[in-house]
Design a protein around this nucleic acid. Structure first.
Length: 1046
RNA sequence: GGGCCAGUAGCUCAGCCGGUUAGAGCGCAGUCCUGAUAAGACUGAGGUCCCUGGUUCGAGUCCAGGCUGGCCCA
C-alpha cells in the first residue's frame, strides 16, 4: 500500500515537512558523502554572495541553477566539494554598519574607533551569512554549509597578497595620479566597474552660461556653458571643435560673443552674426579665466584648444575644462599641456589656495560663484538642466571628480593574454565571450585601492624617504620583514587597524616604512577564490584536483567586468590559464510586469514570502524553464501559473496512480510484463520516457537547463493528457488482468523515473513522490536524492510509436473540431468517422491507434475515406519538403503544372498509391498532400494534410445510446455529490418520462457496469437515497442513487 | 560613435538542420469532458513574424543595410 495522496496538497507545508525529515534522517549528510570515493570529479566554484543582507528571490534564481547542476552531477556519481561562498569585505558592508551606528563620515568612524568598527563589520557578515544559509536551506539548496568559505578569511587575503606580489614582480603594480569619480561622503574613489553599474541618477543641475573674455581681442568673449560651476575655480582651458562652424555675434546688449553657429539660439536674446569661421581658427586664443584672482590660479595661462568630441547637441560648442576636476579633461591635458589644478580634498571640501572657497563643501558654493561671476561681468545666463549624472552606488551621494593618487594594476601586458584565456572557456550563452572581450578591449588599468577601513589590506609599503615600493606576498614574509609592531599584530586577522601596526625596513634606504593605508578593491576578494579555497598556497596536489572549476554561474549584470573579469585577470596573472571551463550566465529579474524590482518601489518580493506563498519548487521550476538570455518577470501570479500548469498536473497523475494502485493492491516489487510485451500505448509512453531521459541528460551535460525543463513539461503533458486519459479505464475496470498490470507497471515506471529526472529541479515534490512510490521496493534508497540519475534504455525508443501517437492525437483533435462544428457532443456516439491521411504509410500506422481514436471520438467505426465520389471539393498540394530537393529550380514548374491538373483525378491516383502524372512530370503519391474540403452529409475538419469527417445525422438507436451515456454521466456526478466512495455499489431508481424506459431497457447493463449499480429500477427512490431532478437529453427524470451496504 | 542582445497574437514568450496553412500560456468569447473533480480538454476570434534588399525552387529561420527598444562601453 502507498500512502494516500492529498489531491489538494499544500505544497509549502509539504516542503517544510520534508525539510524536517531531511534534517532528522541526516539525508543531506548522506548526500554530501554519497560519492566521496568516486574517481569522477565535478568542480563547482561558487561565486560568493555578499553576506550583507537577507537574500532575495533573485539570488534564489542563481542558487537554483547551482543546486540543480550539483544535484545532477551527484546523481551521476561525481565527487564534489559542495562549498558555498560568502563575500565579506568592502564598502557595502561598511555603509550598512555606518547606518546602524548612525555615523556619516570617515571622520566619525575614526572617532568611533576603527577597531570596533571593523569588528562590527565582521559581525554583520557572520550574521547575514547565517541568515542566508537558513534561507538557502529553505530553498532546498544542499551544500556543505559548515564548510562555507568567507572572503574575509586569512587564507583568502593572503592568497591575494601572493597575487599582488606576482604582479609587482612583473612590474604591473603602480601608483598613479588620475582624476577619478569620487564619493565625498564615503571619502573614496570609485573604480570604473563601480560607476558604470547602476551608478547614474537623473538629476537637475544648473546650466550656467558665462563669458571668457579674450585677452587678444578686446571686448570679445567666448560663450561657455557648464553644469558644474564649482569646477570653474580650476578652469585652465576651453575646447572648440576644429571642423564645426563657429560664429562671432554682436548681441543686442552689446556683447561680442563666439559660439558654435548651430547653437546660437542658446544666446536667448537678439544678436547679429558678424563673422563665421571654423573652430580651428580659434585655436590657441588666450582668455581671462573666471577665477584668476584665486591664489591657486596664479600664473596659469588659459587658452583655447581643439577637441573633436565637442558636442553639437548641447551647450554653446565651447566647453570649459578643468583638468583637475574631470576624468576626460585630465587625460587630454597630458597632450595639450593645460595646467592642472586640484581643488578638492577627500571630503569634497575646497583645499587651501581657493580664498573664500577654502574650507567650504563643493555642494554649497554655487551661489557664491554666481555672485563672483556677476561682479566680474562674466555671468551670462542660468537655467535648470536635467541629465543623468553619476552617484555613489552605495550611498547615493553625488559624485565629484577629483585628482587623486591610487594604486593600479597595469593591463598593458595582460590584456591580450586574458582575452586568450577567455576564449578557452565555453560561455553560455555564447555571446558572453563577445561581451567579455569587449570589456577587455575597453577597460582601463585596474584600480585596486580604496581609502576605507574594512577590506583587504593592500600589502604595499612605499618608502616615505626614497619612494621605493615593496609588496609583501605572505604572512611569513611579513613577519620576516617586520621591524616594528609585529607583536601588536600577531593573533589578529590581516585587517585594519591591526595590520597597520606592522612596519618594515626599506630595502633601498633602510628607512622604517609603514603599509599604505588603502584597502583593496572587492573584486580581488572574489576573483582569487579558485586559488584560495582549494589550497593553492598550501596543498598544491589538492588544488590541482579541483582546478579549474568545471562550471561556474552568475547573472550578467556587472559580472563581465566584475567577477568574471577578476577571475580571468587573477588566473591569467598567476597561471596563465582559465580558472573555469564552462560559465553559465543569465539575465536580470524583473517584477511580474517586467519592471525593475526595487525595495523602495515596493515591488520586491522577499524570499520568505515567495517560499511560503508559492512554494520553492514552483519558484525553482519557473527559474529552470526560463531562457537565460531573457529577463525573468517574477511575481506571485507567474509562480502560480507554473504551479497550475506543471506541478499540479504532475501531482494529479501521481495522486491518480496512488488512488487506483491502492484500490487494486498493486505491488511494484512483484514486477510486471516485460516492456516489449505491453500494449502499444504503454510502449509508446515508455518510448517517450526514454527519449526524454536521453535529451534531458544531453541538455544537462551541456549545462542547458531550459531545453531540459521544456522537454519535461511536454512529456508530463503527454503523460497526463494522452497516456493517463487514454488509460483511465484500464485502471478502474474490475478485471485484474495483464493489461491492467501493464498499465500499473508502466505508469509506475514513468512516475519513478520522472521523480529522479526532476529531482535536481524540484527536490521537494520529487522527494515526496519518490518516498511513497519506492517504499515497497526493497533496495530503494531512502531519498530520491541518493538515487542514480535515470539512464535511457535506447532499445525502448521507437519513433514509429511516437508518430502513431501524434497521429492519434491529431485525428482526435480534428474529430472534436468536426463534432464541435456540427454541434454534436462527444458523449453522443456517432456511426463513423472518415479520415484522410497524408500518405499510405500513415494509413498502415492508423491501425495501431484506431481503437484509441474511436474511443476518444466516440465513434463506432473509423475508416479511411475511399469513396471519392462523396467528396465535393479536393485540396491538393505539393509536399515541398520532398518535391523541393528533388526538382530544385524546376519546383515552380511542377507547382504550376499541378494547378492546371484535375484535382479529383490527381487525388484519386494519389490515394490509390500510384504514380501521378502532373503535366510533364510524374509525381510519387507521397509527394502530394491531399485534403478533402467538404463531404456530403459530414462535418469536416482539415489541417496540415489531415482530414476528419463525422456524419451530421444521428440514427434513433444512437440517440438512445447517447441518452444512456448522458444518464451515466448524471449518475456519476450524483455519486460524487452524495460523497460515495469510488468502490461503493448502488441501486438506481428513476421516475419521469416514459421514453426513459426504452433507454434503460436497451442499456441497463452498460449503466449498471459504469455506475457500479446492482440494479436500475423504475420507482420512487427510498428514504436515504441521493435524489436529483434532471433532464436527460430532453427527457425529464427524477433520479435516485441508493448506496448498498458493503 | 562602438559592441552585445532583442523585436513573432492584446500581454508574456516558444519556434531544432530553411520546407510553403507559424505555435503555447495568460486574457477574451463559446463548448465539452470528467471515477485526476477548487483539475482538465476543445473550438473560435486575434499575426504585414520591425522595415528594405539579397541568397534560394522555397526565408519567421540565412546574408546585408536600416529602424525601434534594452544592456554595456566611449
Amino acid at each position: 500500500m502507498f500512502e494516500p495522496v492529498d489531491p489538494k496538497m499544500d505544497f509549502p507545508a509539504m516542503e517544510r515537512e520534508i525539510l524536517r525529515w531531511w534534517e532528522e534522517a541526516g539525508i543531506v549528510e548522506k548526500y554530501l558523502r554519497r560519492n566521496e570515493d568516486s574517481p569522477k570529479r565535478f568542480s563547482f566554484i561558487d561565486g560568493p554572495i555578499t553576506a550583507n543582507n537577507p537574500m532575495g528571490v533573485h539570488h534564489a534564481w542563481g542558487r537554483t541553477y547551482k543546486d540543480m547542476f550539483q544535484r545532477y552531477k551527484t546523481m551521476k556519481g561525481f565527487r564534489q566539494r559542495y562549498q558555498n561562498g560568502f563575500d565579506c569585505q568592502g564598502l557595502w558592508v561598511e555603509v550598512e554598519v555606518e547606518k546602524e551606528l548612525g555615523l556619516d563620515s570617515k571622520r566619525e568612524i575614526e572617532q568611533f574607533g576603527v577597531e570596533r568598527f571593523v569588528e562590527l563589520c565582521k559581525e554583520r557578515v557572520r550574521k547575514y551569512a547565517a541568515v542566508q544559509t537558513g534561507q538557502s536551506i529553505r530553498l532546498g539548496y544542499w551544500m556543505d554549509w559548515d564548510n562555507s568559505y568567507f572572503t574575509m578569511s586569512d587564507e583568502n587575503n593572503y592568497t591575494i597578497w601572493h597575487f599582488l606580489k606576482v604582479c609587482h614582480e612583473r612590474g604591473w603594480i603602480y601608483e598613479g595620479t588620475d582624476v577619478m569619480p569620487w564619493c565625498p561622503r564615503c571619502g573614496t574613489g570609485l573604480s570604473q566597474q563601480e560607476v558604470v553599474t547602476e551608478g547614474y541618477r537623473e538629476m537637475v543641475h544648473p546650466g550656467l552660461y558665462l563669458m571668457f573674455p579674450l585677452l587678444d581681442r578686446e571686448g570679445e568673449s567666448l560663450l561657455v556653458w557648464t553644469t558644474t560651476p564649482w569646477t570653474l575655480t580650476s578652469n585652465t582651458g576651453a575646447y572648440v571643435h576644429p571642423d564645426l562652424a563657429y560664429a562671432k555675434v554682436l548681441t543686442e546688449d552689446g556683447e561680442v560673443l563666439y559660439a558654435l553657429k548651430s547653437r546660437l539660439s542658446e544666446i536667448k536674446r537678439g544678436y547679429e552674426v558678424i563673422e563665421e569661421m571654423p573652430g580651428r581658427a580659434l585655436d590657441g586664443l588666450r582668455y581671462r579665466g573666471p577665477f584668476d584672482e584665486l591664489p591657486s590660479q596664479r600664473g596659469v595661462e588659459h587658452r583655447v584648444v581643439l577637441w573633436e568630441e565637442v558636442s553639437e547637441s548641447e551647450g554653446t560648442g565651447i566647453v570649459h575644462t578643468a583638468p583637475g576636476a574631470g576624468a576626460e579633461d585630465f587625460k587630454i591635458s597630458k597632450q595639450t599641456g593645460l595646467a592642472v589644478i586640484a581643488p578638492l580634498d577627500e571630503f569634497g571640501v575646497f583645499v587651501d589656495g581657493f580664498d573664500w572657497l577654502t574650507g567650504r563643501s563643493v555642494f554649497e558654493v554655487n551661489d557664491g560663484i554666481y555672485e563672483s561671476l556677476k561682479a566680474k561681468g562674466a555671468f551670462f545666463r542660468l537655467e535648470d538642466y536635467t541629465h543623468r549624472y553619476p552617484v555613489c552606488w552605495r550611498c547615493d551621494t553625488e559624485v565629484v571628480f577629483r585628482l587623486v593618487d591610487e594604486w593600479f594594476i597595469s593591463m598593458d601586458e595582460l590584456r591580450d593574454k586574458i582575452a586568450d584565456v577567455a576564449r578557452r572557456v565555453r560561455w553560455i550563452p555564447e555571446f558572453g565571450l563577445q561581451r567579455e572581450l569587449d570589456w577587455l578591449r575597453n577597460m582601463d588599468d585596474w584600480m585596486i585601492s580604496k581609502k576605507r577601513f574594512w577590506g583587504l589590506a593592500l600589502p604595499v609599503f612605499k618608502c616615505g624617504d626614497c619612494g621605493h615600493v615593496e609588496v609583501i606576498g605572505s604572512e611569513t614574509e611579513l613577519e620576516a620583514r617586520a621591524v616594528e609592531g609585529w607583536d601588536d599584530f600577531a593573533g589578529h586577522s590581516p585587517h585594519r587597524p591591526w595590520i597597520d601596526a606592522v612596519k618594515i625596513q626599506c630595502s633601498e634606504c633602510e628607512a622604517v616604512v609603514p603599509r599604505i593605508k588603502d584597502v583593496g578593491n572587492v573584486w580581488l576578494d572574489a576573483g582569487i577564490v579558485p586559488y584560495s579555497t582549494i589550497g593553492y598556497r598550501n596543498d598544491r596536489d589538492y588544488w590541482k584536483q579541483w582546478f579549474p572549476a568545471d562550471w561556474i554561474s552568475e547573472s550578467f549584470p556587472g559580472q563581465f567586468r566584475g567577477w568574471f573579469y577578476s577571475l580571468l585577470v587573477m588566473s591569467t596573472a598567476l597561471e596563465d590559464t582559465e580558472p573555469f571551463r564552462n560559465l553559465y550566465s543569465y539575465a536580470t529579474m524583473r517584477d511580474g510586469k517586467g519592471e525593475e524590482m526595487h525595495k523602495s518601489k515596493g515591488n520586491a518580493i522577499w524570499f520568505e514570502d515567495g517560499a511560503e506563498k508559492m512554494g520553492v519548487d514552483s519558484m525553482r521550476w519557473l527559474y529552470s524553464r526560463q531562457s537565460p538570455v531573457a529577463n525573468l518577470n517574477f511575481g506571485f501570479s507567474t509562480a502560480d501559473e507554473v504551479r497550475r500548469r506543471f506541478i499540479i498536473p504532475l501531482w494529479n497523475i501521481y495522486s491518480f496512480f496512488v488512488t487506483y494502485a491502492n484500490i487494486d493492491g498493486y505491488d511494484p516489487s512483484a514486477g510486471g510484463p516485460p516492456a516489449g510485451e505491453r500494449p502499444e500505448l504503454d510502449r509508446w509512453i515508455l518510448s517517450e520516457l526514454n527519449s526524454l531521459t536521453q535529451s534531458v541528460t544531453q541538455s544537462l551535460d551541456g549545462y542547458e537547463p531550459e531545453p531540459a525543463a521544456r522537454r519535461i513539461e511536454a512529456f508530463v503533458e503527454d503523460l497526463s493528457n494522452w497516456y493517463v486519459r487514454r488509460s483511465r479505464r484500464r485502471f478502474w475496470k474490475s478485471d485484474a488482468d495483464q493489461d491492467k498490470l501493464a498499465a500499473y507497471t508502466t505508469l509506475y515506471e514513468c512516475l519513478t523515473t520522472l521523480a529522479r529526472l526532476l529531482a535536481p529541479f524540484i527536490p521537494f515534490v520529487t522527494e515526496s513522490m519518490y518516498r511513497n512510490l519506492a517504499a515497497p521496493i526493497a533496495d530503494a534508497r531512502e531519498s530520491v536524492h541518493l538515487e542514480a540519475f535515470p539512464e535511457a534504455d535506447e532499445s525502448l525508443i521507437d519513433g514509429g510509436l511516437s508518430s502513431a501517437a501524434r497521429l492519434a492525437m491529431r485525428l482526435s483533435s480534428l474529430g472534436r473540431a468536426a463534432r464541435s462544428q456540427a454541434g454534436v457532443k462527444v458523449r453522443q456516439p456517432v456511426e463513423r468517422a472518415l479520415v484522410k491521411l497524408r500518405s499510405a504509410s500513415e494509413e498502415m500506422r492508423l491501425d495501431s491507434v484506431a481503437s484509441q481514436v474511436r474511443d476518444e471520438l466516440n465513434v463506432k467505426e473509423l475508416s479511411v475515406l475511399d469513396d471519392e465520389s462523396q467528396v465535393s471539393r479536393f485540396d491538393v498540394r505539393l509536399d515541398f519538403s520532398k518535391v523541393g530537393p528533388k526538382y530544385g529550380p524546376r519546383t515552380k514548374e511542377v507547382s504550376a503544372a499541378l494547378e492546371k491538373s484535375d484535382l479529383a483525378e490527381v487525388a484519386a491516383l494519389a490515394q490509390s498509391g500510384k504514380p501521378v502524372p502532373v503535366g510533364a512530370f510524374t509525381l510519387e503519391p507521397d509527394e502530394l498532400v491531399v485534403a478533402s474540403g467538404a463531404i456530403e452529409g459530414y462535418s469536416v475538419a482539415s489541417e496540415g494534410g489531415y482530414t476528419v469527417a463525422v456524419p451530421t445525422d444521428i440514427s434513433p438507436e444512437l440517440r438512445l445510446e447517447g441518452a444512456a451515456r448522458e444518464l451515466v454521466h448524471l449518475l456519476q456526478n450524483m455519486r460524487r455529490a452524495a460523497d460515495f466512495d469510488i468502490t461503493d455499489r448502488i441501486v438506481v431508481y428513476y421516475e419521469g418520462d416514459a421514453a426513459l424506459d426504452e433507454v434503460i431497457g436497451l442499456h441497463a447493463g452498460y449503466i449498471r457496469q459504469e455506475t457500479l449499480a446492482d440494479d436500475v429500477r423504475r420507482g420512487t427512490p427510498p428514504e436515504g437515497a441521493h435524489v436529483e431532478e434532471r433532464s436527460v437529453n430532453g427527457l425529464s427524470a427524477r433520479l435516485g442513487a441508493m448506496r448498498q451496504a458493503r
